[in-house]
């Protein structure tokens, strides 16, 4: 049986930032390090590299805990972004200069009321939105996260035309956006 995510992972990260709390770090590590490793293996990293990058990702969580802003992203999205950046650094040079910009989730822009932004920090809402997709759309979107390189590989893996993959992703994304906007309006 799969364990549920730590109840308030954002609070654990805050304890790491404020008090270098190793117990909090252990909880985050136990849950996310093995999932980051799976993500990397599914993205094509050899197991040894996936192990190394998963450990590196957890070190980054420790080091950068102070820059995590729960108002802008769920802990899972933040850790996903850290893993993603390490993966692209490992794969190609020339991308690291970008991360300083996008890892902030646009924190330099004035915060404005945005249903997506408030919905996106709510992991449960995003998961519910994913469940509202039809299976083809959900699969195409999920694959986009761990397939290294492009939608044409997804197209090959699924045996459907590239245009179909793009359409599934596009309509799936629009559906997710509409779902979250509707749910967040309902919450007001």
């Amino acid at each position: 049986m799969r364990s549920p995510p730590p109840r308030d992972c954002g609070a654990l990260i805050a304890r790491i930032a404020q008090a270098q709390d190793r117990d909090a770090f252990a909880e985050v590590f136990d849950y996310y390090a093995p999932r980051v490793k799976t993500l990397l293996v599914k993205s094509g990293s050899p197991p040894a590299a996936a192990e190394e990058l998963a450990q590196e990702a957890m070190l980054t969580v420790w080091r950068k805990a102070a820059s995590y802003d729960p108002a802008r992203a769920s802990a899972a999205a933040w850790i996903f972004t850290i893993a993603r950046n390490l993966r692209s650094d490992a794969l190609r040079r020339g991308s690291s200069a970008l991360h300083a910009f996008d890892a902030t989730f646009g924190a330099e822009a004035p915060a404005q009321p945005d249903a997506i932004l408030s919905g996106a920090q709510d992991g449960a809402c995003v998961r519910a939105a994913m469940r509202s997709l039809n299976p083809d759309q959900a699969q195409a979107i999920e694959m986009a996260f761990y397939q290294e390189q492009t939608h044409s590989q997804i197209s090959q893996a699924l045996g459907v035309p590239l245009g179909t993959v793009k359409a599934r992703i596009r309509f799936g994304m629009m559906k997710l956006k509409a779902f979250i906007e509707r749910e967040m309006r309902g919450a007001e």
Binding site: P34, A76, A77, R127, I141
Partner: peptide
Amino acid sequence: TRTWTHLAQAVGGSVLDDLEPTPLD
């Protein structure tokens, strides 16, 4: 346009949460 990248990163988080864990060394 960042609405879309926020959404996509949130989906990345949900994909990560749903993965089967692979034990570390």
